[in-house]
Nucleic acid binder design. Structure first.
Length: 696
RNA sequence: GGGCGCUUAGCUCAGUGGUAGAGCGACUCGUUUACACCGAGUAGGCCGAGGGUUCGAUCCCUUCAGCGCCCACCA
């Protein structure tokens, strides 16, 4: 009996040692689990980016997932949690590009081949750092199945999917007005544009008999029509007519004073125009505004591209403005219009400016030839999966946004003008696929779809896909419900007829104590590894668990970690006490029933079934709190105090029963500490706690 | 413009149709060998504001305010 344990729990001396024990046991791999396990429990990870560094969101998400996985494993399920990383196209490429800039070069100088080599080097060196940090968090993932979204078999899966869609006629190439990032020099999807309210100007410009307002006067050079609402009585007589109006002459060199010239412009009627806004009449620039492009399509308007991929005016803007940046052109044209008397007034104005999600540059909508995936049928599949209950979203309130988004979706622009990513599998194509195109296949491709897994040693010969698909559970921040979950769902439905997981749990987003977004660049980020250093992993996990209540946001405070640390210590000392109180020759056995024990044992049974239900229903805070309260205030404060002068068998058995079962119940939350205590108990025939039987 | 969430003790948050709870912090006592990372206590809340339903509301309905987030083609 180890009575000489220190009076305080020491996470640092425990954690690495215990993690190694787990790894050596092989129990993270489902095939190695003891006993006959017919029922499976498979959870799907959200693979971190290779650019990633562990942040509080990860700590929360993965802790939550590990709690479930560990409980399921103890309940006797054949449990798989497969780890991996995502190549993260645009963000990873940006990181390495920044590195190159520091070295005084760039990717174009390096050339495509060398650059991709650099990307792989980078991923070798840093890409798995975050996976190493998984060990610090105590995550019970199957390291033998680690995946990367650019692994050879994963690339096969991507190719298969692309060609499948292509043959179905769902993939097409077309010139569309898309969101273009002039810095990243690539198309990006609607979801990668962040709209930020910014101060700008609203310019009122005379267009013949009308005055209309715009925030982007430079796009005037690409106007091909004016539009009014069909029911707007004020302008009815103009609809369908071509007006001759005065504009600026863009053929005059910049050095010379501006002149006006007459141009002709058509007036169309379109429902997209809000008659109540401004003068109720808008200019239509089909090449540089997505709404205008749609109006243009409806009315067969020509589209004049005046801004190029670098964000500069091109030859269509006329010699006077050509080669200027859009912002310069704006100043110039305003000056010119003022000089020839076409500006009526300029007002300060707040409006939404689209910025690149990855580099924060202003997005320039422009026409570009891209690959698109038709969303019509896939949308149906994704809706069907949720409406039929094949996929359940928790908390339920996220179902509506999910449906709403799908019902308003456009075709998906899947091509990116990047170098790092899956190449479009069509000959002569230089572009790569949107990262989410491959991420969408994660639950499929990681399990070996469409190829059979090459039977590595000790593996069953049948493929992982047959064995483990579909998975049971996935959890994420709300931010990627549309970017990722939707796409995994329709991919799964399309290729297997089954949704890739049964339950989605949207967990809270971790904010700072002031309610601000945690961000490294804002200096508001907290590194979970620092917290682990300070409090220990179990304290972090337990503290997080008590804050996991299913709300949208979670203001993270360290108080809860203080609590977690104290609690870890309390449990440690409870264990020390019990070991000390029991006689030398006490026969430890893991009792199955509370019958014949003190009443508190039955109380524990109640707690146990409550905790089980709580975890199954994602009520982590409830589970953690009930354990905390029972262990501290019922077991320690009351029962142990009362038992101090008792030496009968019932008391001994009760103490042993309480301790062993509390360790089990607490193991998913505090795996290191509980496993360490367990290893000190002189129970014969025991296994690692992580595979002991769950007490319900 | 539409939608969602939140508003409870100094701080972070639980919670229930019927005398309000936890952790952290504060205060008072306690040198009892499991634990001072402890124990026994104490203080501190018209449960955001107004209205309604009810015998009774912090909890249900409604309006409003503040904060946060998501979606959207407001020039």
């Amino acid at each position: 009996m180890s009575k000489d344990l220190p009076t305080a729990y020491n996470p640092k001396e425990t954690e690495d040692k215990i993690y190694q024990l787990w790894q050596e046991s092989g129990f993270f791999t489902p095939e190695n689990l003891p006993g006959k396990r017919k029922e499976k429990f498979v959870t799907c990870i959200a693979p971190p980016n290779i650019t990633g560094e562990l942040h509080m969101g990860h700590a929360l998400e993965y802790t939550l997932q590990d709690i479930i996985v560990r409980m399921k494993r103890m309940q006797g399920y054949k449990t798989l949690w497969l780890p991996g990383t995502d190549h993260a196209g645009i963000s990873a490429q940006n990181v390495v590009e920044k590195q190159l800039v520091k070295e005084g070069t760039n990717r174009h100088e390096l050339g495509r081949e060398k650059f991709i080599e650099r990307m792989w080097q980078w991923r070798e060196k840093y890409g798995n750092t975050i996976l190493e940090q998984f060990k610090k968090l105590g995550l019970s993932v199957d390291w033998t199945r680690t995946k990367f979204t650019m692994d050879p078999d994963y690339q096969e899966a991507v190719k298969t999917v692309f060609l499948h869609y292509y043959k179905k006629g769902w993939i097409y190439k077309g010139v569309r007005v898309i969101n273009w990032c002039t810095r990243c020099a690539t198309a990006i999807s609607d979801l990668e544009v962040n709209y930020v309210t910014e101060k700008g100007k609203l310019y009122y410009i005379r267009y013949g008999p009308f005055t209309l307002a715009t925030t982007r006067p430079e796009t005037k050079l690409g106007d091909t029509a004016l539009a009014v609402h069909p029911d707007d009585a004020r302008y009815k007589e103009f609809v369908g007519k071509e007006l001759e109006i005065e504009s600026v002459d863009n053929s005059i060199p910049t050095g010379e004073p501006p002149k006006s010239k007459k141009i002709k412009i058509l007036v169309v009627a379109d429902g997209a125009v809000d008659p109540k806004f401004g003068t109720g009449i808008i200019k239509v620039t089909p090449a540089h505004d997505i709404t205008d492009a749609e109006i243009g399509q409806r009315h067969n308007l020509s589209s004049v591209k005046i801004i190029d991929e670098h964000g500069r005016m091109n030859e269509n803007a006329g010699i006077r403005y050509q080669a200027m940046k859009t912002t310069e052109a704006r100043e110039q044209i305003v000056k010119d219009l003022e000089a020839i008397g076409l500006i009526e007034k300029i007002e300060d104005y707040e409006h939404n400016v689209g910025r690149c999600d990855r580099c924060n540059s202003v997005i320039e909508p422009l026409p570009s030839e891209q690959w698109f995936l038709k969303m019509k049928d896939l949308t149906k599949l994704a809706l069907e999966a949720v409406e039929s209950g094949k996929v359940k979203i928790h908390p339920e309130r996220w179902q509506e946004p999910y449906k709403h988004w799908l019902n308003n979706i456009r075709d998906w622009n899947i091509s990116r003008q990047l170098w790092w990513g899956h190449k479009i599998p069509i000959e002569g194509e230089e572009d790569v696929l949107d990262t989410w195109f491959s991420s969408a296949l994660w639950p499929l491709a990681t399990l070996g779809w469409p190829l059979l897994r090459q039977g590595s040693e000790g593996q069953a010969s049948q493929s992982d896909f047959e064995e483990y698909y579909p998975t049971d559970f996935i959890t994420s921040d709300r931010g990627i419900l549309f970017l990722w979950h939707v796409r995994m769902i329709f991919s799964g439905m399309e290729f297997t007829g089954q949704a890739p997981f049964k339950d989605i749990y949207i967990h809270a987003t971790v904010l700072t104590k002031d309610g601000k977004r945690m961000s490294k660049s804002l200096g508001t980020g907290i590194n979970p590894l620092d917290l682990i250093e300070k409090y220990g992993t179990d304290a972090l996990r337990f503290g997080l668990a008590t804050q996991l209540t299913g709300l949208q946001d979670l203001r993270f405070g360290e108080d809860l970690l203080v609590m977690g640390k104290k609690f870890a210590n309390k449990l440690w000392n409870i264990a020390r006490y019990v070991m000390m109180a029991l006689p030398e020759d006490y026969k430890w056995e893991v009792k199955k029933s509370s019958t014949g024990l003190a009443p508190i044992a039955a109380k524990l049974d109640e707690i146990a079934s409550g905790v089980t239900k709580n975890i199954e229903h994602y009520e982590f805070a409830e589970a953690a709190n009930s354990l905390y309260h029972f262990i501290w205030h019922e077991l320690a404060d009351k029962y142990i105090e009362e038992s101090k002068d008792k030496t009968d068998q019932e008391t001994y058995d009760t103490l042993a029963y309480l301790l062993t079962n509390c360790l089990k119940l607490l193991h998913p939350f505090m795996p290191f500490l509980t496993e360490e205590i367990w290893s000190n108990l002189t129970i014969s025939d025991k296994n690692l706690l992580m595979v002991e039987k769950w007490p319900t």
